[in-house]
Design a protein around this nucleic acid. Structure first.
Lengths: 225, 225
DNA sequence: GCAATGGTTCGACTAAGATCGAACCATGAA
DNA sequence: TTCATGGTTCGATCTTAGTCGAACCATTGC
């Protein structure tokens, strides 16, 4: 018994209303200040401050100071993926919110997951890449084929530049709403950025929702389907 | 704010010492009785009973009654995968147990994850299958190629029989210790069973550890590497 | 029938920790 | 310097829930 990593601490951290709100808010990918987080969590700033030190100690979130502001964000992709896992189980076991948000359908269609695209459109992208054989399962995750690299160059993404970073280029992230994979990693992040740059989509303020314009959605579907 | 599934309840359930012990114990795949679980959790049976009703309500565990015994197990693969995710984050952030178990190396080498093989050897199997192109990334997870099917027939696994079940045949499960994928799903379960049948390995009593005999390990390596 | 064993229910105790008021520190602007 | 704002620290309060003792129910075996 008592083998393996100790999961209690981390689960207990997530298992508090205020902290869970904080973490889900940060899943949208934008770094937020303590007072903003106090707003979304519905507690005072003293309380949120205490929570944030705990989350920092556990390395679930990271912080960057700018002047008198401190911007908090999720520490890394693993944390985001863990939260998505939790949402998956919560969703499946019917632990939906009592007051189901009217935003729910939009959220399931397209949302930000840390820094990449999730939801039905995110899964559509991933499926498209697989069907055209642009992704290969490599020994440590996913690899982009040469054809895939050309494809991304075609929509203005320089894969070479991304590949040199420390961060893995491609990664599969399990989508809680659709229960399928979507594209994460540096490439996933770059793609979402590009969607914004091209005017295909805009992010809804203060939410994870990504709003695609009709023409933007069509453009995405055409390329990836 | 307050979008998406409500993760607090589930995280809070896992974020308790006794319940976390219960769940990790069940990750070994064997169904256990309430009194056995009281033992591993280090609490009395009244307490464990209260915990189990909560876990049942949340559908994290399931139960089967046999006479006056009630056998508890994880409700499904998703829960096991969530726990592995948690272990991954816990492991990475250094939340190892204070008294690191002497079993830890064995655990990292080969262990049971719900009902399939995890750890270094589990990852080795997955890598081997990928390198020989026996697995293809399909639109909803992994697909076994015809060659792959023949390969598994060669070690005595009837893939046809497995494929007819409701459960997905192949699935990739992220390994907390190696941070790579290993094979889950019906095929993963069948493979682990077959390892036991062939005498390649035996499960350590009361632990997730899988002990491969030297010849068994060699046999596995030969076929999958 | 009567023990013995596996599990549950109830009630009471206790400890952990989430919360806030108030005071305090730090940065930036006027 | 002075004020306003972002954030932290401290102390006190209060609720939640994990825990066990004791009693109870259910099944098996003798």
């Amino acid at each position: 018994m008592k083998d393996g990593p100790n999961i209690v601490g981390i689960a207990a951290l997530i298992g508090d209303h205020a902290r869970a709100e904080i973490l889900t808010a940060l899943t949208a990918g934008q770094a937020l200040t303590a007072t903003e987080l106090a707003g979304v969590a519905g507690v005072t700033k003293q309380t949120v401050s205490a929570h944030l030190t705990k989350l920092l100690d556990a390395r679930l979130v990271a912080v960057e100071s700018q002047g008198r502001h401190r911007y908090f964000r999720l520490d890394n992709q693993d944390v985001a993926q863990l939260l998505e896992s939790l949402m998956g189980v919560a969703y499946r076991t019917g632990a939906v919110r009592l007051r189901a948000s009217p935003r729910e359908p939009a959220l399931r269609k397209a949302r930000v997951c840390y820094d990449h695209l999730a939801g039905e459109l995110g899964v559509l992208v991933f499926d498209g890449l697989e069907q055209r054989r642009f992704l290969r399962a490599g020994s440590d995750g996913l690899r982009l084929t040469a054809n895939g690299q050309r494809f991304f160059a075609g929509i203005g993404i320089d894969v070479e530049a991304l590949a040199n970073r420390r961060r893995p280029l491609c990664r599969a992230c399990l989508d809680w709403s659709v229960r399928r994979h979507h594209l994460a990693g540096a490439l996933g992040a770059a793609l979402l950025d590009r969607c914004f740059e091209l005017g295909w989509a805009r992010r809804a303020k203060g939410s994870r929702v990504v709003n695609f314009s009709p023409s933007g959605e069509q453009a995405l579907r055409e390329r990836f389907h």
